[in-house]
Measured scan of single mutants.
Amino acid sequence: KNAAKIVNEALNQGITLFVSDNKLKYKTNRDSIPSELLEEWKQHKQELIDFLTQLES
């Protein structure tokens, strides 16, 4: 999976991924984040940080 797909899947579940101080963060109104999503974010962390940083610049 690529970073764009992961970010879109998160958005579809009401979760916004973003970068703050070079760290991957998220915002959501959900009570909890599915563990498989958290695991996927960890596996692709640097790719996600790079992707989101490019989007914001």
Rank of each mutant, 00 (worst) to 15 (best):
L38M: 12
D21W: 04
N8C: 15
D31R: 09
L17P: 01
T16Q: 11
H44I: 05
D50I: 10
I6E: 00
A3G: 04
P34D: 05
F51Q: 02
H44E: 02
E39F: 07
N22D: 08
K23Y: 06
L55V: 13
P34V: 03
K5L: 14
T16S: 06
L24K: 00
A10D: 01
K5F: 12
L55N: 13
L24P: 01
Q46V: 08
W41S: 02
S35E: 13
D21F: 05
V19K: 02
K23S: 10
N22I: 02
L17Y: 01
N12W: 08
I49P: 00
E39I: 08
E47I: 09
K1P: 08
L11K: 09
A10V: 01
F51D: 00
E56I: 12
I33L: 06
A10P: 00
K23I: 12
K27T: 11
L11E: 06
V19Q: 03
K5G: 07
I6A: 02
T53A: 06
L48W: 00
D21Q: 07
G14Q: 04
E36T: 11
Y26C: 07
Q54T: 09
P34Q: 04
E39D: 10
P34A: 05
E36N: 09
T53D: 05
S20C: 15
K5H: 13
G14M: 04
Q13R: 09
E36Q: 13
E47R: 05
Y26M: 05
A10F: 03
L11W: 10
D21H: 08
L52T: 00
R30L: 14
I6N: 01
A10R: 00
K27V: 11
E47W: 04
N8D: 12
K1L: 12
D21V: 04
F18P: 01
L17S: 01
T53M: 14
T53L: 13
N29F: 10
S57N: 13
R30V: 06
I6P: 00
L11Q: 08
L37V: 05
N22W: 05
L52C: 02
N22L: 06
K25S: 10
D21C: 11
L17D: 01
T28H: 06
R30A: 09
G14T: 02
S35Y: 11
N29E: 13
D31S: 12
Y26H: 05
P34F: 03
L11I: 07
E56W: 07
L48F: 01
L52R: 00
N2I: 15
Y26P: 01
L48Q: 00
Q54N: 11
D50V: 08
Q13H: 14
S20E: 15
K42E: 15
S32W: 10
W41M: 08
F51Y: 15
N29G: 07
